[in-house]
Amino acid sequence: MARTEQQSNDKFAGRWFWRYASPAAFYPLAGKIENVCWVLACLLTLVGLYVGFFVAPTDATQGEVYRVIFIHVPAAWMAMVIYLAMAFWAGTGLVLGTRLSFMMSHALAPTGAIMAVVALWTGALWGRPTWGTYWVWDARITSTLILFFLYVGYMALAAAFDDKKKGDRASALIALVGAINVPIIYFSVKWWTTLHQGSSVRPGSSSMATTMLWAMLIMTFAFWAYCVAAAMHRLRTQIIERESGSAWLREAVK
């Protein structure tokens, strides 16, 4: 381990961050990031949910049910952000050939898919009392559903190859194709819904109380922390799986 690190340090003198493209160098750092983020996620969730459920006022038109927004909206945001991050690491992997980038991309995909499902599920539970139906073919809901399909396609493709390296590059390519398509799909769906049905009343179109905004902000950071922690955990598991033969790993997990 020491030798390879020395080499890479010499090669990229002054660019300390390149060092972390090596699984051996990043593995311990990922562990630290993971721990910090787990703590942050727990604390922020507790504070955020407390503010959201007990401090924030009852909504004038929706009553108590609006409080699902504190989970629904951060989850929907994360589903989108994670797709971009995933495509970014996939692209980085394709260009630079760094295997840790592909692992990062794989580590993000399940969390992103879960976020999409959470957003859809809480949206359905919210829609029933406010709109009178679990599902509306509204632009945002529909594009989140399609985003979920893209996550599933990415994961299924990565798993379809016996040769892991091939699976890495193939799924990276499809992640990039998806990333180009996401805006096209979003605007198509938006146009489609405005063509075929009147736009539905959007929650949150009225101005929000400050405490509501705070709760949402804190919950958003909680979701960020959770997603980073989960991704780092999955990344470490992947490193252990893939680098299982290497000496540094035996040293690190001893």
């Binding site: 893209l150 396609g153 299924a156 493709l157 194709v177 398509n181 799909i185 769906v189 146009w191």
Partner: peptide, 14 residues
């Protein structure tokens, strides 16, 4: 199907 069909939704819509 899983890979291709979601990407054809814009074409389907229009």
């Amino acid at each position: 199907a899983v890979l291709v069909l979601p990407l054809t939704i814009p074409t389907l819509i229009f």
